[in-house]
Amino acid sequence: MHCKQINNNRQLRNKFIYLCGSQYQILIMESVFLCKFLELFSTKRFACAHRIRPKSFLSLTLFLLLFFGSLGLFAQPNGKTEHELRINRNEMPVKILEELADFLEEARRIRYFREFDGTSYFWEVKFIYEGRHFSVKFNQDYSLYDIEFLTHWRLAEREVRQPLISYFEQNYRRFRIKRLQFTFLPQPGISQPDFFERILDDALPPPQFYEVEAEVISSITGTMGFYEFRFDTHFNLVEKRIIIPVSDVNLHF
């Protein structure tokens, strides 16, 4: 049953409460807890519609108001907005799995994701191959978008660290680099299988971009921020995006 059908049916509307957008499918069950339990481990988004008697609903509302306060709505500031959802192997396109088959045989910690970057959808496969962390991203039409190699900042070569440190020292009062990533874009004239072999099997060539996530303190204003910096092969800054970190108050408090 679709959300709109529930909405249009006045009798159902009076009896059911639900949380859903128009794109969600509704699963009608008697047990709220079983429904929520299934939703937790499901890879598909769905909402649970359950029957609540008006008296119970009122007491539930009062309980929520008493213990959890009013629900203020505050908009989140704009920043780097990417949404990533982990999916199962059988939800990945077969074409992508076939292209990576040779590498996935020997890889470990293989994970599959569906990603939305604000404008487009991507398929992503992350794995550890020969001790190195790779992320291979494909467009919606299954063409290769990029390959990312994630490394620990302290393990990067001096030839990479030195120019980046120089940049941050020149432009910021203090900085702390949290993450370093090499981005390899597909090369024209090189087939995808050859490209995979060149990046994953052979010694890593110089990447097209270096991406750095760092906390910085501005030398002018003294304000602190968390940004993603993108540098080209000559370590010139190409792009800088603010990162809105997920709230970690439950870890600190």
Partner: peptide, 10 residues
């Protein structure tokens, strides 16, 4: 804190 469904919490 370990995310269950993705790499980042959303």
């Amino acid at each position: 804190e370990i995310p269950v469904r993705g790499v980042r919490l959303e």
